[in-house]
């Protein structure tokens, strides 16, 4: 049996050494008279905020109250160490599930059973049990953090406030991320979103396979995400519904759909209302004859292969 005390001590050494400073007195001269850092994204954008935090190597928590959600990001000396959205779960189980390291069932079981175990301890237990590696966990946490922060680049309105030296509790696994790259990638995505909104303004439209498959499709090599979208293509599913079914944000679904359109694989169409009951209507003789001819063509083709 593992002693909880030993475990905790091990845990502390095991994870990246991001001292959260949670229980410390902070002897930072900048902290005893914190300057107000409050405002609205309309006047000072996410990019500008992150630039400031990066350059001034700030430590503390930034809260942004957007229209439909609230985001919290913690920074340690200008590095991003955690980002969460009020609307989403950010437990270790959720992060591992999102990054595909564990199944939905496993995640649910973990959530149900792990109770009050801190993420750091839970992570170590999972590694010891052989479910995941330390690398898996760090990557998943990092990805979850980045997913949140990249969403914020699309927020154009919302009150923000920075609380100096306020940091997350020590129980979380914190992976420090350099803001330089985040800012670059985030602004690239913001520009892209702007362009995509222009190309694909309406997410209430549906998709269908094009009637004239492009020869380029022969060598199509699509990513897992692209295939997820393709598999939901149906005149009854709107692009917005496909995004929700796949847990994709607007930028992501727009980028994928736009790519598929460019590849000549899909067309955008008006969605068709889903009929309540699929009725099996008997075929007219003419339709049946056409159908038979179609099947015969298929038979001949496969024979010739």
């Amino acid at each position: 049996m593992m002693q909880p005390v030993t475990l905790t001590r091990k845990v502390v050494k095991f994870w990246p050494q991001v001292d959260s400073g949670y229980n410390q007195n902070v002897h930072d001269t900048r902290s005893w008279k914190p300057m107000a850092l409050k405002g609205n994204l309309r006047d000072f954008s996410t990019t500008q905020l992150l630039n400031l935090i990066n350059l001034a190597r700030k430590t503390g928590t930034l809260t942004i109250q957007g229209g439909s959600d609230t985001a919290q990001m913690a920074f340690r000396e200008g590095k991003l160490i955690r980002a969460t959205l009020a609307s989403e779960d950010h437990t270790l189980a959720d992060m591992l599930h999102k990054s595909g390291k564990i199944s939905g069932k496993q995640a649910a079981a973990l959530r149900a059973r792990s109770g009050t175990i801190a993420d750091k301890e839970l992570g170590l237990l999972l590694i010891n049990a052989g479910y995941v590696t330390q690398h898996d966990i760090i990557q998943s946490v990092k990805q979850a953090t980045l997913d949140v922060i990249y969403k914020l680049f699309a927020w154009v309105d919302g009150m923000f406030r920075f609380e100096a030296n306020k940091l997350p509790e020590n129980k979380h696994i914190l992976v420090p991320i350099d803001l330089d790259g985040v800012i670059m990638e985030g602004s690239r995505r913001a520009r892209e979103l702007e362009q995509l909104q222009h190309e694909l303004p309406n997410l209430d439209m549906a998709l269908k396979f094009t009637d004239r498959p492009d020869p380029r499709l022969r060598n199509a090599n699509l990513s897992v995400d692209e295939w997820r979208v393709v598999s939901f293509i149906n005149p009854k599913n709107t692009i917005g519904q496909i995004a929700r079914a796949n847990n994709m944000d607007e930028t992501k679904i727009r980028r994928i759909v736009y790519g598929l359109m460019q590849a000549g694989l899909v067309d955008v169409i008006e969605p068709v209302q889903k009929p309540k009951v699929v009725e099996q209507r008997p075929m007219t003789p003419k339709a049946a004859a056409e159908r038979r001819s179609l099947v015969n063509r298929l038979i001949n083709r496969i024979r010739s292969l």
Partner: peptide, 10 residues
């Protein structure tokens, strides 16, 4: 299957 359906139809 198509052929049997066609029979019913005719």
């Amino acid at each position: 299957e198509l052929e049997s359906e066609a029979l019913i139809e005719e």
